[in-house]
Design a protein around this nucleic acid. Structure first.
Length: 556
DNA sequence: GTCCTGAGCGCG
DNA sequence: AAAGCGCGCTCAGGAC
């Protein structure tokens, strides 16, 4: 059963029941704002409906603040975006009335977000106080259910919508919970590496010291090492003919200035990205509460807003610390992308290797003379589209071992080069090429042909990776959705643990100490459930490695 | 002064 | 060791 939540003009909320097919049941109800959470809680307890709203991110945080958790929802904006682009539903001609329409993206990067067309109006449409009424929401829901029912793969698209919608719930719950963050630990890490917190905007003592060391070695007493141009000139004067100031390129030179320069860069990065200013801005009441953007990446991966939540550097992970009497249960899905490829391509040979806990070692034994590093480089090269270097040279050998898997990514690459879209296992399709890209492919002059070919190859690498990265994101989202349900069940038995962090193929549960092992089991069971949901009986394993620790740095 | 882009580097 | 995919964030420096 569905219950639609819609804002009413008088400030109250309309609740409308529909059956599984979208037929209305009974008259609308209304709830005044202050009673909404309690009313929803009662309906949740008695009927376990699927809550339908324009966007979970607008509504659900309010419920959480009132202490009300909901199990299932249908996020019309997220589902609309996925269905509208999906090749599986192309024949249904569904178009979303809600999802923001975005321009086709350039290969390898998205265009900046266009400003809202209707001025500040859109700011308010996006809150639960303003927006489409119950009739519009009902219309949209029916259109989406029809698009799913009429699709070439209805089961997969239904799962994709359920996964994104569950993701929206988890995202709000994790933001409300936050990662337990020990500012004292963080501050002592900073003091240790950078020196005491400076009063003003000057460099911390140890960083300034490193800068002086560098200036001496380069014979440039007034150098500002934060300026790439100044730095480049100083390097050249000292006889270091670097083309860029990237760390990996600088490492190629032997000169006494290189070591202090690399150290300076490392420390300057720590200060700028995760220093005292970061602590002030993002950590409140002992928690780091990032905002997750579900399916915010073209491939369906999540993005985040604020605080760089998906880039917490190893340097400061010790500050993510369980409260007294608690543990962090940190789990990651080992070698997720190659396993996904084996399942996607139905490559039984590679699937056999994916039965093993160490897939790379099995592949190395099968055809790379036991050289694990070689097997790994070859496989990642296939997924990323490497053509040069060692990875490119190893491709023929990989293709001989696993013809189906390699053919699968090659096909995705060729489709992309030709301007076609590609689609993940559950039906998320890649964006169409931009107008500019298509025009470039029509060009006739030799110079433009060269550029067109380069752009085609770029897009081929993008679509090649899209099918694997996107399907891996679907597995991970299902993993979290399944884990979320199991953690709820454990809580009912007095074993408390809550999801507090998610990073592509990694989850973190903050658990009361006696519940930690049960949470670890739930994580493993959820991984198995996600495999069944996506790939049924395909013989591919998705092992997770789990660490029960006091702080994040102790995991792996 | 404000806005935007590229370089660089953090994460998977 | 390497430079193939996807992101967010900060800073410097140029454009306006």
């Amino acid at each position: 059963m569905h219950v639609i939540l819609a804002p009413a003009p008088d400030g109250s909320v309309v609740l409308r029941r529909l059956d599984a097919r979208g037929h209305r049941i009974g008259p609308d109800m209304t709830a005044a704002r202050p009673e909404l959470a309690r009313e929803a809680e009662r309906i949740e307890r008695e009927e376990r409906p699927r809550w339908v709203w324009r966007r979970a991110a607008d509504w659900y945080p309010g419920f959480l603040a009132a202490g009300v958790r909901l199990e299932r929802c249908h996020d019309l904006a997220l589902c609309g975006a996925a269905l509208e682009g999906s090749a599986f539903a192309a024949a249904t001609h569904y178009t979303s009335t809600f999802a923001p329409r975005s321009e086709p993206t350039e290969p390898g990067g998205s265009l900046p977000q266009l400003p809202a067309p209707e001025g500040q109006g859109s700011l308010f449409e996006d809150t639960p106080d303003h927006g489409p009424d119950a009739d519009k929401l009902e219309y949209e829901l029916k259109a989406q259910l029809a698009a799913i029912a009429g699709a070439t793969q209805p089961g997969r698209l239904r799962l994709l919508c359920a996964a994104d919608s569950a993701g929206a719930l988890v995202a709000a719950e994790m933001q409300a919970a936050g990662i337990p963050w020990d500012s004292t630990t963080h501050e002592s890490l900073l003091a240790e590496q950078l020196g005491p917190r400076p009063r003003g905007l000057e460099r911390p003592a140890l960083l300034e010291e490193k800068a002086n060391e560098l200036r001496e070695h380069l014979g440039a007493p007034r150098l500002n090492p934060d300026s790439p141009q100044e730095l480049m000139r100083a390097l050249h004067r000292a006889g270091i003919e670097a083309r860029t100031t990237r760390a990996w390129e600088l490492r190629e030179f032997t000169h006494p200035a290189i070591q202090p320069l690399l150290e300076y860069k490392k420390l300057a990065r720590l200060l700028a990205a995760n220093g005292w200013a970061w602590l002030d801005a993002w950590v409140r009441d002992g928690r780091f509460r990032p905002e997750y953007v579900v399916a915010g990446v073209v491939t369906g991966r999540w993005a985040s807003r604020g605080g760089g939540a998906l880039q917490i550097p190893k340097q400061v992970r010790a500050a993510a610390r369980a409260l007294p009497g608690h543990k962090l249960v940190v789990a990651d899905a080992s070698q997720l992308e190659p396993r996904v490829l084996a399942a996607l391509a139905r490559d039984d040979e590679m699937a056999a290797a994916a039965q093993d806990a160490d897939l790379y070692a099995r592949i190395a034994a099968a055809g790379f003379g036991g050289d694990r590093a070689k097997a790994k480089v070859a496989l990642l090269g296939a997924i990323y589209g490497a053509t040069t270097g060692e990875s490119g040279r190893l491709m023929p050998q990989l293709a001989k071992l696993y013809p189906r898997a390699v053919a699968y990514v090659e096909q995705a690459a060729r489709d992309g080069e030709r301007g076609l879209t590609v689609t993940t296992h559950l039906g998320r399709s890649s964006p169409r090429p931009s107008e500019r890209w298509q025009r470039l492919q029509q060009s006739t002059t030799a110079e433009e042909q060269r550029r067109a070919d380069a752009a085609a190859r770029d897009r081929g690498r993008f679509t090649r990776n899209f099918v694997v990265q996107g399907t891996a994101a679907e597995w991970a989202e299902c993993w979290m959705a399944e884990l979320r349900l199991r953690l709820r069940r454990l809580a009912g038995r007095g074993l408390h643990g809550e999801l507090v962090y998610f990073l592509h193929d990694e989850v973190m549960v903050h658990a009361e100490e006696p519940a930690a092992e049960a949470c670890a089991d739930a994580i493993r069971e959820a991984a198995a459930a996600a495999r069944r949901l996506l790939f049924g009986s395909a013989p591919v394993e998705f092992p997770v490695s789990i660490a029960v620790v006091d702080s994040y740095d102790q995991a792996k």
